[in-house]
């Protein structure tokens, strides 16, 4: 266990060291991050210059949602996407064999070895925006809500990780599909706005079938603590069940894929 933590620390350290060598790049990336944020804020400004309420969400609520979306988008690109892309690349190039030769659990290894440190700008900007929006509405944010928010974000990232792991594992069966990650981005797109904009039947689907609601809407709602945004006492419970189930299912699929890759009888 300690060894696992130490290894993660090493991977992060290596990434940071190598990034520090490219200082100019950092400013360009920061600029791009700000650009994205600006675009998203322009979108919010556009919507709320035409209406006061978006399915019950007011502008401050939306700011929190945009912040959460940024955090998730940044976090995904910081430590999930780089790892999953490398898995898919390795399977295609055959370098995946080296992973199997290492005395380390394969799933753990493929999940932590890559780290893109500069994406933290998105996470920081998103967190700042979310806290600002919430503060505007509530003043000081009650601590239990912040704790709940952190918990919901962990659940959100777990679900996202599970989806990505599954998509990467598909490569064990269909090696050739290059942009399978588009499946995730398409689904993620639906999470840009509150789940309540969709017709009820679609809301149901996006909550229980493809749990987009738990990726952005519910974490934002938990920070706001406002029922209008969808927060209810059942949400954290569902989030934990869903996150756990997703993790177990995706891990199982990954291990089945490993067995197939190494020609173990199915």
């Amino acid at each position: 266990m300690i060894r696992a933590v130490r290894l993660i620390g090493l991977f992060i350290r290596v990434s940071v060291q190598n990034f520090a060598a490219y200082r100019f790049d950092f400013f360009v990336r920061l600029f791009v991050s700000l650009g994205h944020l600006f675009g998203e804020l322009l979108a919010v400004a556009t919507v709320f210059s035409n209406t006061e309420s978006l399915a019950g969400w007011r502008v401050e609520h939306m700011l929190v949602l945009v912040g959460v979306f940024r955090i998730v988008a940044g976090g995904i690109r910081m430590f999930i996407v780089p790892n999953m892309r490398k898995v898919m690349e390795d399977i295609r190039s055959g370098s995946f064999d080296f992973l199997l030769l290492a005395p380390l659990d394969a799933q753990f290894h493929v999940s932590v070895r890559e780290f893109v440190v500069w994406r933290i700008t998105d996470v920081v900007l998103g967190a700042a925006l979310a806290l600002y929006g919430c503060h505007k509405l509530l003043g000081t944010i009650p601590l239990p809500q912040v704790v709940l928010f952190v918990f919901m974000m962990i659940a959100s990232f777990t679900i996202v990780y599970a989806v990505w792991l599954t998509l990467a594992a598909v490569c064990f069966w269909i090696v050739r599909i290059e942009n399978i990650e588009m499946i995730f981005w398409n689904i993620f797109e639906a999470g840009r706005f509150p789940i309540q904009i969709y017709p009820p039947w679609m809301q149901w689907g996006l909550t229980y079938l493809i749990p987009v609601a738990f990726i952005t809407t519910f974490p934002a709602a938990s920070l706001l603590g406002d029922p209008v945004t969808g927060m209810s006492p059942r949400v954290p419970l569902f989030a934990s069940i869903l996150a756990l189930a997703a993790l177990l299912l995706s891990s199982w699929i990954f291990r089945r894929g490993l067995r197939r890759y190494s020609g173990a009888s199915a």
Partner: peptide, 12 residues
């Protein structure tokens, strides 16, 4: 579309 449709029905 879903978003603007919700926005429209939410506007006065």
């Amino acid at each position: 579309y879903a978003m603007w449709s919700a926005a429209a029905s939410g506007s006065s």
